[in-house]
Amino acid sequence: MARNKTQDAGEILQGTLDLLILRTLILGPAHGHTIARSIESTSENALEVEQGSLYPALHRLEDRGLVASEWGVSDNNRRAKFYRLTAKGRKELAAATGRWRRMTRAIGLILGESNG
């Protein structure tokens, strides 16, 4: 009973996970666990990263050349794979952020929110 995903809207909107990962990585290289935690804590736990989607998403981003990965050692002194943003990734992040802003604004207008 701890969480009820369907009602909490904690599930991340389809297609936005990539954007969130890229945004998180702008602070510096991180491994998968950190990325998930960071997304959750930054969103004040409003969003929950489904672990099963995180790694496919990371690999997809890597194949698209938006992030690069490297094995390293984490703060906990454990082996972990660190992802960092590539130049191409930075460009994509800027573009995706713009797209996102335009869309949320448009949706907001339709839903009748005063632009605040």
Binding site: H31, T34, D63, R64, R78
Partner: peptide, 27 residues
């Protein structure tokens, strides 16, 4: 993108398995 996504599937799968282990350890 690129064709490389279809290459070395097996070694990359092992890599992913290790990555998942690492994730679980952190958790």
């Amino acid at each position: 993108m690129g064709f490389q996504r279809y290459l070395n599937r097996e070694s990359r799968d092992r890599d992913l398995a290790e990555e998942i282990q690492s994730h679980l350890a952190h958790e």
